[in-house]
Structures are given as structure tokens and as C-alpha cells.
Write a protein that binds this DNA or RNA. Sequence first.
DNA 1: AAATTGTTCCATCTAATGATTGAAGCATTG
DNA 2: CAATGCTTCAATCATTAGATGGAACAATTT
Lengths: 216, 216
Amino acid sequence: MKTALDKARQDPESMKARILTVARRIFGDYGYHGTTTRMIAQEVGIDVSTLHYHWGDKKGLYEAVVLDINKDLGQSLRDVERMIHGKPLGERLAISIDVMTDYLFEHPEIANLILHRYFGRTREEAVQEIQVPEFTVDMARSMNLIRNQKEPTPRALLEVLAVVNGIYNFVSGEVFFRSIVHVDREVYITQVKEVLKFILIPAFVQREDKGDPGPA
Amino acid sequence: MKTALDKARQDPESMKARILTVARRIFGDYGYHGTTTRMIAQEVGIDVSTLHYHWGDKKGLYEAVVLDINKDLGQSLRDVERMIHGKPLGERLAISIDVMTDYLFEHPEIANLILHRYFGRTREEAVQEIQVPEFTVDMARSMNLIRNQKEPTPRALLEVLAVVNGIYNFVSGEVFFRSIVHVDREVYITQVKEVLKFILIPAFVQREDKGDPGPA
DNA sequence: AAATTGTTCCATCTAATGATTGAAGCATTG
DNA sequence: CAATGCTTCAATCATTAGATGGAACAATTT
């Protein structure tokens, strides 16, 4: 079955797809309440009524954006999982950090949207959820933080969250952080990857070297 | 000179102070655009016009909130700095993480507000800044990541940001993350501190042990 | 106690925002 | 090409949100 989202993706030049693309960026930058349908319409270069014609109300569009981003992020994570399969822990982490950081810097709206949903609230109730729980469990498994078929422990999940949040933060915080460290975008991205690997890898490797299987 | 903020702090039962306290929480939860002056007024139990009478327009109140939080956070950081003075690196980090995490879990609006300003944008221009740059440099110094009197390197600043962001994230993300890991608040806080120390300390200690003075 | 000043609320205004309507344009099909 | 359906926009409506004026009340001063 083709969903509305699928259809919008089919032809990236279709009005529906163009609106969705702009909506991702604006919702990511300004959050749900900080975004007006007029801002999106203006950016696309259309009338608001055209936007409503294609996507219904604001909440509907926002939910489409969230679903769209879930899809993209899920795909990326599966790609990474394939790349690191069978490699030793330190390498798995290094590759994951490199690849996911590059990917998210190319699509910062994804990190923006996720962080808005982590940390912010909305006056509307029951807006579509980001599938963070599922993704987190998958990653915990991929990091070998889960023994056998058992449920991941809270500790293992928190460790994964700490890792991925580190990436989201530096991507979404680029504008703000670059104003602190005074480097251009290219240098910033390079240094972020170095810092993330410097901080995130040793703890896990050290624990494994000790023969400690971790919190699983 | 007494500022309006000082006056509001004098008597925490004063209307002005009560409004400020509630405003901190609501702005932290919903962000600038997600918050309405009516929400704040209702929470305080007063009419909107009373709010405007004391704090002027919405932007003015928001700026007061940011200044107030800057003050609180700056004070806490100075407290921590005194506690860790002269101790070895690993211990300095462990104490900082424990103390700051506890403090922020008691005042989550601080972490909320900071993250909103890191990652979000506002349609209004020129809203008062969080003094993150200053704080970050201070912490870099306190973590001995700065050699002599020299300017901190971008690398050192990014390392500090990684550390503090880790804390902010788990505090502000409590509601969301706890829904993933299924633990109560008390367990969550304990585990967060353990995970943060587990991940953040080894990298820095390892580098020091190698005689590598770090990015300074 | 009268006068002054400070505080609060109700009613109301204005602007912004979400949303719809109906007409016009354009393509597709019978 | 006439009829149909799809897409777009200008105009407009309804609701919400920021803000204010003035009356009522309370506190303070004289």
C-alpha cells in the first residue's frame, strides 16, 4: 500500500514533496509552535491554501515530517549496522560515529527534529512519535550491549543514548557552538568527529579489555 | 544598583518573583513560541494584565528568565570549581558530574532553557543570550584543558561542551528517556550519573596518564 | 481620614495564525 | 472540443495570543 508519504517521495519535484522538504527544515529550526504554515508556504513560494490542500492541517503536516524523518533515520542506521558487522568494538564505534555524523551534518533537520521532541513539549496532545525506543534498542544490540536474546538493561540503553545524543547535539548546535569556538564549518565537523571518538570510545573499549561484558 | 531581577529575588513570595519562577518552568518546557503569557498567568493564578504590569512584554519576561538562569548556573559552576580545586583529574570530573547532575535535576528548567537556546531558533531577533561562551571557557580552564594563559583551543572547548551537554541531555530528556528505559525517577538519576562517569572520565584520564597534556 | 501610590482584574483592542471557500487555471479524457 | 477532475490562489473567516485602559481595590503616606 502506498501511503501519502510514499507518493510524495516518488517525485521529489512534486508540490507535495517540495512542501515536505521545506517543512522538515523549518519545523527543525523553529519547533512546532515556532513554525507557521505561512513561513513554510512562503519558503516554498506558494499560498498557504495550497499547503493545506496537500497536507491538511498543521498537525498533519508535522506528523508527516516526523514519519519521514523516522524512515530516513532508520534506513541510515540499518546501513551503518551493515557496515560495522563483525568488526571489533573500537572500530564499530569509530565507523558509526564517522558515518552517522557525516550523514546528520548533511541532514541537520533530522537531528533538530529529534532534539525538539526529546526536550520540548507541545500544547497539542498525541502528535506522532519519533521511533527512538526501537532505534535505541537496535543500536544497543548492534553495540553488543545486550547479552543473548535478553531485554536490554536500562544501563545499556542509557549508554546508547549518551552516544547518539553526543552526535545530535553537535549537529544541531552547530550555529551556536561555532560562535563559541570560532572555526568554519569544515573544521568544526572534523573536530567534532575527533572529539566524539576521543570521548566515546575509550570507556567501552576499556571495559571490554577487562573482560567485563558490560551492563548486558 | 538593584536590578528588577534582584528585587524579584529579594522576596520569593512577591508577585514578581512568583511569575518569574513559573515563567522559568513554562518557557523551559514549551520554548519561547510554545509558551503563551496566558499559560504563565493561569499557572500563577493571576490575570495576564498583572503579568504585563510586572514584567512588560513577553520578550522582556523571557530575557529576565534567561538572566536569572545565567545567574543561578554561574553560581553553581563557581561552587563546583571551589569543590574540585587541587584534586586529581579523574576526581575533579567525577565530583563535577555528581554535583552538577544533582543540581540540574533539582532545577531542570535550567537545562531545558539552555537546550532550547542551543538548538532552537526564535522568530524574534536579539533575545538575551545565555552566557554559555563564558561558562565554557571557565570550565575548560577548571578542567586544566588550557595551558598557561593561552586562549582555549577549539578542541578543548568542544571537549567541555561534550561533557556538559551530556548532563543537560539526560536532565531535560528525563520524561522521554524514562519512557524508554522504564525506571522510576530515583533509579534514573542514579544510573545517569553512573553512565556519565563511565563514559566521560576514562578518555581524559587515559590521555593524562600518557603524559599527553591534551589539546591545550 | 484623606490623599497618594501601588496592585489587580475585567473588558477590549489589534495582530498573527490556522483554516476554508470559491473562482480561475490547466491538464486529461471521452 | 466539451467535460471532468486536479491544482492553485485571492479573499475571507475564526480563533488565538500579545497587549492595554480604566475601574476597583489595597497599601502607604500625609
